[in-house]
Amino acid sequence: MSKAVAGEAAVDVANEAMTLCGGRGYRENGKLARLLRDARASHVMAPTTNLLKLWAGKALLGLPLL
């Protein structure tokens, strides 16, 4: 679950930083644009955030993971 929480927090922080910086954050070589791409990638890297949440819910209910 720590991967899921950290990944969602990273996306939220990166989105807020891009909002505060406006168009300057979207520059091709901008550090914020790279951080946002990296943060969004954490949602799709295996195991995905949705899969982690599903596993956590099943574990709490005592159901088999697969």
Rank of each mutant, 00 (worst) to 15 (best):
T19N: 08
V11S: 05
A56S: 12
P64I: 05
E8Q: 12
G62C: 05
L61H: 06
R40Y: 04
C21P: 00
A17W: 03
W55Y: 13
D12T: 04
L61T: 02
G30F: 00
V5M: 15
A59R: 14
G30C: 11
L20V: 05
L66D: 11
S42F: 00
D12Y: 01
N29V: 03
A4T: 02
A56R: 13
K3H: 13
A17K: 07
N29T: 09
V5E: 15
L32W: 07
E8S: 10
M1I: 12
E16V: 00
A10S: 11
L32E: 09
K3V: 04
L65A: 13
V13Q: 14
A10E: 09
V11E: 08
H43V: 01
M1H: 14
L66G: 08
N29Y: 02
H43S: 04
S42Q: 09
V44H: 08
L65I: 13
R24G: 15
L61W: 03
G25A: 12
H43I: 01
L60I: 15
R37E: 09
N29C: 02
H43M: 06
L20P: 00
L60H: 13
A56P: 00
A6S: 13
L32N: 06
R24K: 14
G7P: 01
L35Y: 01
S2R: 15
E8V: 03
S2L: 15
L52N: 08
K53D: 10
A4I: 02
E28V: 07
R24M: 14
A56I: 07
R27P: 00
K58M: 12
A39T: 02
H43C: 02
L20Q: 11
L52Q: 13
R24P: 01
P47E: 12
R37N: 07
A4Q: 06
P64H: 07
L52F: 12
L35D: 02
Y26D: 07
V13R: 14
L54M: 15
A4P: 00
M1W: 14
A46P: 00
A17P: 02
L65K: 10
L52K: 07
E28N: 06
R34I: 03
V13K: 15
L20K: 08
R40M: 08
S42C: 03
G30D: 10
L61Y: 03
A6M: 11
P47V: 11
K53W: 14
N50W: 08
R34P: 00
A9L: 10
A9Q: 11
V44L: 08
A46W: 09
P47F: 05
G25M: 04
R24Q: 13
N15Q: 13
A56W: 06
N15G: 04
G23Y: 09
A46Q: 09
D12N: 11
C21I: 03
A41N: 10
E8A: 10
E8L: 12
C21L: 11
S2H: 14
R27G: 09
V44C: 05
A10W: 01
A14D: 03
L36H: 05
A46E: 11
A59E: 15
M1C: 13
N50G: 13
E28S: 09
T49L: 13
L60F: 12
L52T: 05
G25E: 06
K53V: 04
R27A: 03
A10F: 02
A9E: 12
G62R: 06
K58W: 02
G23R: 08
L20E: 13
H43P: 01
L35C: 01
R40E: 10
E8D: 12
M18K: 03
L61E: 10
G23N: 12
T19I: 02
C21R: 03
